[in-house]
């Protein structure tokens, strides 16, 4: 990219099959082990190592155990605050979801490009975030219909609706309900993509202005670089917040299914 004099801020999102796995397939579908899959595995492995540190089960915890218990306790409190005591049974799912997304976001921010690797954030792909969103939405549907049967449709008619408004409101609420998986998946995808693009565009400014002339490099380049430092910090915050928002919205939707008004 750099040798062509043009920096493509989108290249970071390119998916490439790794090491001759190009033609792996399952039932005719391509399942090549890509750089995206590599980061999914990395996120899973890092999460596994993290949680192993919490398995010492000591009464007086060490730092690592404390950290793991802090995270599980955080998810537990989130679920209890949103769903009540019945929310405890969703701790394994929401914890997996939150930590998996969080680690994906953070691992994608590692400055591995400095040593010639291709850092990749699979949460910037809606094929990945869409699967997670549909998974959460399916659980909401399954729990809702399992617990309440067709009564679950009363979710679309808020309490105290005048009779004349029941039918229009039903459709409005139905649409807002059906939009949930899209907003859930697209929010994460857009937030990660936008931040990463912005960082790469600013990095392009630094490189191109420095190549153009020392004066431009010192003014535009320095300003862009300072901005990049701030935005990098912001991106770490966004990585945490987006994972939190995903887990929070999942628990809010689960509350609808569990408690139905």
């Amino acid at each position: 990219m750099a040798e062509s004099g043009k920096i493509d801020p989108m290249h970071q999102f390119a998916i490439e099959p790794l090491f001759g796995t190009d033609h792996w397939s399952l039932g005719g579908f391509n399942i090549a082990f890509t750089n995206s899959a590599l980061y999914m595995v990395l996120a899973a492995v890092v999460l596994w190592i993290f949680v192993i540190g919490g398995m010492k089960r000591e009464l007086v915890p060490g730092r690592w155990q404390m950290a793991v218990e802090y995270m599980t306790g955080f998810i537990k409190n989130l679920l209890i605050a949103n769903i009540g005591d019945k929310g405890r049974k969703y701790i394994p799912y929401v914890f997996s979801l939150f930590m998996f997304i969080l680690l994906a976001n953070l691992l994608g921010l590692l400055p591995l490009g400095l040593i010639g690797m291709h850092p990749f954030t699979f949460t910037s792909h809606f094929t990945a975030t869409g699967v997670l969103a549909i998974m959460s939405f399916s659980i909401v549907l399954i729990v809702g219909f399992w617990k309440h049967g067709f009564h679950f449709f009363s979710l679309f008619v808020p309490h105290g609706t005048p009779i004349a408004m029941v039918v229009p409101l039903f459709f409005i609420e139905l649409v807002s309900f059906m939009v949930r998986p899209f907003s859930l998946g697209l929010r994460l995808f857009v937030a990660m993509t936008a931040g990463h693009v912005l960082l790469k565009v600013l990095a392009g400014f630094v490189i191109n202005s420095a190549n153009a002339s020392p004066a431009l490099g010192l003014t535009v380049g320095t300003a862009s670089f300072i901005l990049m430092i701030g935005i990098s910090a912001l991106e770490m915050l966004v990585a945490v917040i987006q994972a939190y928002v995903f887990a929070l919205l999942t628990s809010v939707y689960l509350n609808d299914a569990e408690n139905l008004h």
């Binding site: 399942i31 999914m40 996120a43 999460l47 596994w48 394994p92 997996s96 699967v131």
Partner: peptide
């Protein structure tokens, strides 16, 4: 890439959910 993405995401997240979660 969609099939590869979905396959590996389901595999890794499934492992995360069942083993860790």
């Amino acid at each position: 890439t969609y099939s590869s993405q979905i396959f590996w995401l389901l595999l890794t997240f499934g492992l995360v959910f069942f083993v860790i979660g």
